[in-house]
Amino acid sequence: MLTIEGGGETPVVLSGRLDATQAAAAQSYLDRLQGVVTLDCSDLQYLSSAGLGVFLKTHKRLLGAGGRLRLTAVNRHLQDIFSYSGFDQILEIDPGR
């Protein structure tokens, strides 16, 4: 289960698990946002490659319009996924804890 709240002037708060069953809904939500988008991942417990795909697609779209995607408060599991996939080199990531 994944819940997404916020955006615009406030960070987007992701809570729960971003897996293959939730990727389409997450993509649809993030597709509406512009500029520099901050994702608060303090309650994001789990991320699979489907979630990585959502982040990559969103970041590339934002880059094309002068924005970017940045992530804050990522847990150890997410840090490992970002590190092993090289996403820590293309996304601005603040472990935050």
């Binding site: 490659s49 795909g53 990559l56 092993y84 996939s85």
Partner: peptide, 16 residues
């Protein structure tokens, strides 16, 4: 997978 590519050249496929 070439994980050193810049974002614009990255594709998510195969990462899993």
């Amino acid at each position: 997978v070439d994980i050193a590519l810049p974002a614009v050249q990255r594709q998510p496929g195969g990462l899993g």
